[in-house]
Amino acid sequence: MPRAGLDHDTVVAAAATIADAEGLDAVTLSRVAAELGVKSPSLYNHVAGREGLLRGIALLGLSELAAALRDAAVGRSGDDALLAASQAYRAYVIAHPGRYAAGAITAPSPDDQPLQQAASTVLDLLTAILRSWNLSPDDTIHALRAIRASVHGFTTLETSGGFGLKQDTDESFHRLILALAAGFRGR
């Protein structure tokens, strides 16, 4: 019988907290069980093993990232929307590196429709922002890749200490995103 108060969302939330603090490699059934004060086998009532934990973290992360992007971009357009959404994206990656790594870096399996949908929601929000530039469908794909690569690359360098010079990283990020926007206008 499942422990009272323990459910799928609680188990995934505990795993996501571990992933953010210690990395995805630290997410194991035994580590999550210890965090929740239960034995590892009891987690199987709520998740399908370690893969279920990682999938749950991915779904949670993508859902939270989509909400952050949506909240940042609402009521904005063009450069302003792109800048606000990119800043929210960067803030999410910095605050939740484990959740981000679980779901937003690699494309989900075509067989996993819920994960596909969660990833599509993030891309759909970014695509909506890109409509301001009237890009062709192919150019939109290239622009999506540029945004994701820019935010990912910048935050990866930032969080790993790759920016050792004294200039303000917020200003550097701001300029990066505005350069992307200028490039989109040039298409």
Rank of each mutant, 00 (worst) to 15 (best):
G78H: 02
G78D: 11
G78E: 08
D79G: 04
D79A: 13
D80G: 10
D80V: 13
A81G: 13
A81W: 01
L82I: 07
L83C: 11
A85M: 07
A85E: 06
A85K: 06
S86Q: 09
Q87T: 12
Y89K: 12
Y89I: 08
Y89V: 01
R90M: 13
R90P: 08
A91N: 12
Y92F: 15
V93Q: 06
I94W: 01
I94P: 05
I94C: 06
A95C: 14
H96N: 14
H96I: 08
G98F: 03
Y100H: 14
A101P: 11
A102C: 11
A102K: 11
G103I: 02
A104I: 03
I105K: 12
I105A: 12
I105Y: 09
A107W: 02
A107C: 03
A107P: 01
P108S: 12
P108F: 00
S109K: 02
S109E: 11
D111E: 15
D112C: 08
P114A: 08
P114G: 15
L115V: 07
A119F: 08
S120I: 00
S120F: 03
T121M: 10
L123V: 01
D124T: 03
L125M: 01
L126K: 01
L126V: 09
T127F: 01
T127G: 13
T127L: 00
A128Q: 13
I129W: 04
S132Q: 02
S132T: 10
S132E: 03
S132F: 00
W133H: 07
W133C: 05
W133D: 07
W133K: 05
L135I: 04
L135A: 00
P137C: 01
P137K: 00
D138C: 07
D138V: 15
D138T: 14
D139S: 06
T140H: 00
T140V: 08
I141M: 03
H142K: 13
A143W: 04
A143R: 05
R145D: 15
R145F: 04
A146D: 06
A146I: 05
A146V: 04
I147E: 03
I147S: 10
I147D: 07
R148L: 04
S150Y: 05
V151L: 07
V151Y: 01
H152C: 06
H152E: 13
G153K: 01
G153H: 05
F154D: 04
F154T: 09
F154L: 05
T155Q: 09
T155V: 09
T155N: 07
T156G: 11
T156I: 11
T156E: 14
T156D: 10
L157A: 14
E158Q: 13
E158S: 09
T159V: 13
T159N: 03
T159E: 04
S160I: 07
